[in-house]
Design a protein around this nucleic acid. Structure first.
Lengths: 350, 350
DNA sequence: CTGTTAGCGCGTTCAC
DNA sequence: GTGAACGCGCTAACAG
């Protein structure tokens, strides 16, 4: 009855009963007195195995503390059961929330997620190729994270979905609505009687920002107002302070600031307040993202909440669909956003 | 000269020159007119291959857009070149920062990272086993994330390191210093003349909190003061409000709050302020973690900054050491923390 | 219900 | 400098 084994090594003579560093399906089979096929069956839940045999196998697994080798399984089934997620960085709640959504949905679908952060990587293209090696499909946040060349290379090899990035060729993309919300937000500030609004953020920096700026412009046009040129600044904390300084110095004139994100808005607002300026009295400030701090500062920051979590969920879902043979969606998937009115725009709210 | 091939399928007749969905090392070899051994050599940079041959291979790789199958390589080399990271959740900057440190160091070491979030998972043990299948080693944040039973099972199979969690048996652990910093922080508030301090957080909730509470107690003892019983609350936003309400109602009496983390401190502080209380005039509030909001609120939140990023780096490093055959460290690795004094403790700072 | 056997794609000795 | 052949551990037909 002893089952024959092909592979090498640790046959019977392996020390005591419990624990063996590299237990394989062969050792388990031997221990249980069955064939590897049977072991595989009970572990995969496929086929039918008698209760007694099942128990014997389970016991052997337990005793040997058997951990299947994922690589071997992946090779046999011909897919990794893993999704790759490429994020530019991980600061602030935006990326984290997206990651949470992505991971949770992926897990539900039985896929593990391999994360890669591009920030700080010397050779991103190399890292992406390395990632592609271990996963079935890849989601990238913001096109900037993945050089178009790499994207093109991957595309066709593995399913790719771009999250909140510039659409490329026939690559799928999912994103949040920006233009219309930005228009509403701007109109809201305008409706408070403000007339000299400034858009703080670089429209050329990311498609998201570009759309928000477009909304900013549209709101002005609707009132026959001429929008000022955007204040093209990057997203670092220091820049917020710098903008505030320029306003305090009278270099910049405005009675309302529409910032491309909350970090920027928060930094500017607190700096202005420290200098004795009244927000929103003298100048209204609104942001984008609804980060935690937005509801703790006073006045509360009026902003726009994005369905970031759902964006992650959607990305994971699309990837899984594609891996399962689904066709790529031609149209970008767009999720709705929501205005969050607090006090910094001039409303009575705290 | 045509090389023979073992595996199936797509031999010569495969459509046009470029792109083939599932290029393998065989197709590349065939295309380059060499053996798979040679292809492997140039791709791994091992052995010596003539310049011309190397170029032929590289060209073939390029044309076929060849992406090696990680699973096959892993199976052959017998390791995944991936580290697992288990986090309870991903809210706030703490986990994100840790993840960044872990990922960046892992990447430097040529390891990809597979992330798993326990929150929301029905069967954590199952998820952990699944993860173990695809990685060489695992880091867990907080023992709560991984049932001791699972930890024990994994331990011995794969290297495991616990981050900021209760040490277990012979499992390695890395963490930040807590007790002494908490004592200093508490003493600082005490030095402001406060005498009725309250520790907000559940010492039994996590070893980190337990140590901070120990420091809180130690600071009192050093002044021959009797510390009040800790206010055992969980870490949700709602609880902060609840605590504030109890203080406002006079149910709780205190002139200083030492909170187990910033989220809690922030929520309490803003709620108190909204109700007209003077912070720190009537009551001082300090936190732990130094989240972004801590420097934007007024008064700025006095707190303790942890070397979270470095904790992640260290964990990744230890894992790699272990995978490379290094011995486990017996002593827990402890990284230093730093007090961040702002205004909420009673200091003049903004 | 269970065992045999043939790959999955790649790294890696050995010969040449 | 290069190729042939074997094995990594597991799944999936195919027999019985």
């Amino acid at each position: 009855m002893a089952t024959a084994r092909k592979p090498n090594g640790q046959s019977s003579g392996q020390a005591s009963g419990t624990s063996s560093a590299g237990a394989t399906i062969y050792s388990v089979a031997e221990r249980a007195g069955v064939s590897i096929a049977t072991v595989s069956r009970v572990l995969q839940g496929a086929g039918t195995v008698s209760t007694t045999t099942t128990q014997k196998v389970l016991d052997a697994v337990e005793q040997l503390n058997y951990v299947p080798l994922g690589a071997a399984r992946s090779l046999a089934v011909r897919h990794h059961e893993a999704h790759g997620l490429i994020l530019p960085e991980l600061s602030g709640p935006y990326y984290a929330e997206l990651l949470i959504g992505f991971e949770s949905r992926a897990a539900e679908l039985g896929q593990s997620v391999t994360l890669m952060l591009t920030e700080g990587k010397a050779d991103i293209a190399r890292a992406v190729r390395q990632l592609a090696t271990h996963v079935d499909a890849i989601a990238v946040l913001g096109s900037a994270a993945m050089p178009p060349a790499v994207a093109r290379a991957l595309h066709g090899q593995k399913p790719v979905v771009i999250i909140a990035g510039a659409p490329q060729e026939g690559i799928e993309s999912v994103r949040a609505e920006n233009a219309r919300s930005a228009e509403q937000l701007t109109e809201h500030v305008l409706a408070h009687g403000r007339t000299r609004l400034l858009f703080v953020g670089d429209p050329d920096g990311a498609p998201d920002i570009s759309e928000r700026h477009a909304g900013f412009v549209a709101a002005h046009r609707a009132r026959d107002l001429e929008p000022a040129e955007p204040l093209r600044v990057a997203f670092r904390e220091g820049t917020g302070e710098a903008v505030a300084e320029r306003i305090l110095a009278g270099e910049l004139e405005a009675d309302g600031l529409v910032c491309a994100n909350d970090e920027l808005a928060l930094a500017i607002m607190s700096h202005l307040q420290d200098a004795g300026r009244d927000v929103p009295g003298e100048i209204a400030v609104v942001g984008w993202d609804d980060v935690m701090a937005a509801r703790y500062v006073r006045p509360g920051l009026t902003t726009v909440r994005q369905p970031v979590h759902d964006l992650g969920v959607l990305a994971a879902e699309r990837l899984h669909q594609r891996v399962s043979g689904g066709r790529p969606l031609l149209e970008p998937q767009v999720l709705p956003t929501a205005l969050v009115i607090r006090g910094s725009c001039g409303c009575a709210a705290p």
